[in-house]
Each structure stands twice: as C-alpha cells, then as structure tokens.
C-alpha cells in the first residue's frame, strides 16, 4: 500500500510549486539540453550515436506502452506487435513505394496504430491477467503472419533491401547519417513526449488514471471504462508503432523478432525498471537496459542469463523502478 502511494505521487500533477519556474520545468529543460547534445558528448565517454538512437527508440516504445501500463493499468504483453507492424510498414514502403522516410514513417505509424485501434476493443473485454494473455496471443498472430507470409515479409530471414535516404525539405536536405538520424529520432521522441504529457494532464488522462486506480468506482460514476481502456490502447499503439518504424530505419532491416512477445517483455521491463508510475521512468529504464545489454553481449555468450537476472532482480528489489526508488528516498 505505502508503495503504491509513494509511487503515485510522482505520477500526478501537484498543485503548482511556488516560485517563477518550477523544478519540474527546469528538470525537463535540462533533460532536453542533455539529449540535444548527445552527439557531442557521447563519443567522449566511449559511446556511439547509433546506441543513443536505440536507447531513445526503446524509450519511446516503452513510454507509449506505459500510457496503457503505468497510467491506465492495462498490462499488455503484446505491444511488440504494433512496434513490428510499424517497422514492416516503413520497410515495405521504402522498398517498394517511396524514397521519403517521413512518408514511410507516417504510413508505418498508421499501420501499427490502426491495428491497435481495431484490436484494443477485443482485448479490453477482459481485465488483469487475462487481458495480458489475450494481448500476447493477438501479438503472436502477427508474428506468425510475418514468419509465414514469405513473399511479402521475407519470412524468418527478415525484410531487407531498403535504406535511409536524406530528408528533402524545400530548400534544405537533411543527411541521414548517424547524427542526422539521431536528431530525427529525438524530434519524434520529443513530439510524442509532449503529446503524452498533454494527454496525461487532460480530463482524458485523469480518466485513464482513474481506471488504473479503481475501475469499479468509475463504472459507478457512469464511465464506460472499456471505451477508455481501448482509447489508451490505441494511443499507445500509435506511439509504439512510430518507435518500430524508427527502429527499422536505424537497422535498415526488420525481422519477425520485432513482432515477438519477447520484445514486448523487453518494453515492459524497461518501463518497470525505470518506474512505470513515473513519466520519465521508461527513458531511465531504456538507458540502463540497452547499455547493459550492449555491454554484456559484447563480453559473454550468456548474456541472456544476465538479461533474465535483470528481470528477476528488478521485480524483487525495484518494484517501483529506479526513479520511483529515488523519489521515495527523497520523500522520506
């Protein structure tokens, strides 16, 4: 009980803090500056820009998922499906239809997002554990579709034969090398963060949180809770699909693994590890998860055991996630 309370404090807007600029605004500005400067400072500490793009893409996916998971209380174990649909949408568009990666991203996001919009209402027919089982099963359907529909998707070998082209705007061509692409990812990340932030601070977002907290009370206030679960499902689906599209661009490749439930598990642990009741929790989780995985897989073949241990240990010892953990410390 105390755990939930401590964690929720960070998730909700408090009465405005005294002073001209609140600490929250300052913190967000600082975060933005750090992210903007990544291509300059990351190489100095031994990182590479593509790794930062990967972190942001996974953070974006986990943030999208977290709207449903952490703020609406819907435990989806199948969001990789929308990630993968976004990825295949982008890959197929670039391979067959267009050289514009922006158009491809738009189409990929729509494909994944619309799938989530159509399937959400089916999944929300049950709650709790069963909701999780249904979402995972729906997700696996797409996985097997991608594996079997060889002629379109390339089957288990994955989809190749597309690449990032520079973005041509009127009077301006943006090269899509590692750094250029990083800024594209950052723009997408920032726009989605702003969108999610706006939603969470609106009556719609308040309704989502109400469903997480007590759906019975909401039903007896006359709210059709399933409709709102489905809306949250859809919004999170669009965000996750965009992340998937970016991921396909980062790799110039996508495979059925981007649809598989194991990737859904990665997104979930990123949200939980960072703190799922915290707006920036998924970003913190993605930084840790991607860096650890990148490092460990370079030094041992048994990296799966290490990833498994991250799951086990964070569930046992950091149920509030890293940010939740520190928030509680500073609160007490």
């Amino acid at each position: 009980m105390t755990m939930e309370i401590a964690s929720a404090r960070t998730a909700v807007a408090k009465p405005p803090a005294p002073g001209l600029i609140s600490r929250r605004v300052l913190g967000n500005v600082a975060l933005g500056l750090v992210l903007l400067a990544v291509p300059f400072w990351l190489p100095l500490v031994g990182g590479y820009t593509d790794l930062a793009s990967r972190v942001l893409i996974y953070a974006l996916a986990a943030m999208g998922l977290n709207l449903l998971l952490g703020f609406t209380g819907g435990l989806s174990f199948g969001h990789a499906a929308y990630f993968g649909l976004g990825a295949y949408g982008v890959g197929l568009m670039l391979k067959y239809e267009t050289h514009s990666i922006l158009l491809a991203l738009l189409v990929g996001t729509l494909v994944g997002g619309i799938a989530a919009t159509l399937l959400g209402p089916i999944a929300v027919r049950r709650r709790g554990i069963y909701f999780a089982m249904i979402t995972i099963a729906i997700g696996q359907m797409f996985y097997f579709l991608a594996v079997r529909w060889n002629s379109l998707t390339g089957g288990e070998d994955g989809l190749t034969g597309f690449s990032r082209h520079p973005i041509k705007l009127p009077g301006l061509t943006v090269p899509m090398g590692s750094v250029g692409f990083f800024y594209l990812v950052l723009v997408c990340f920032g726009a989605c963060a702003l969108l999610l932030w706006t939603v969470l601070n609106s009556p719609l977002g308040h309704t989502f949180v109400g469903i997480r907290e007590n759906y019975k009370r909401l039903i007896f206030l006359g709210v059709r809770t399933k409709r709102y679960l489905a809306i949250s499902f859809a919004i999170s689906g669009f965000v996750v699909a965009l992340a998937g599209g970016l991921n396909a661009l980062l790799d110039n490749f996508t495979s059925p693994n981007t649809l598989n439930y194991t990737l859904s598990g990665d997104f979930l642990i990123i949200a939980v590890l960072g703190g799922m009741r915290n707006f920036w929790g998924p970003l913190a989780g993605a930084v840790i998860f991607i860096l650890v995985r990148d490092y460990v897989s370079s030094i041992t073949d048994n990296w799966m055991t290490v990833i498994g241990l991250i799951f086990v240990l964070s569930v046992l010892f950091f149920p509030l996630g890293i940010l939740g953990f520190f928030n509680r410390k500073s609160a007490s």
Binding site: K14, P15, V209, E213
Partner: peptide, 12 residues
C-alpha cells in the same frame, strides 16, 4: 482512488 490526492479524486 487511493493513490491520488483528495483533489484529484474529486477532479475525476
């Protein structure tokens, strides 16, 4: 809504 403030409870 136990983990929200009274204000947020009423706001919903």
């Amino acid at each position: 809504f136990l983990s929200l403030t009274v204000y947020e409870n009423l706001r919903i």
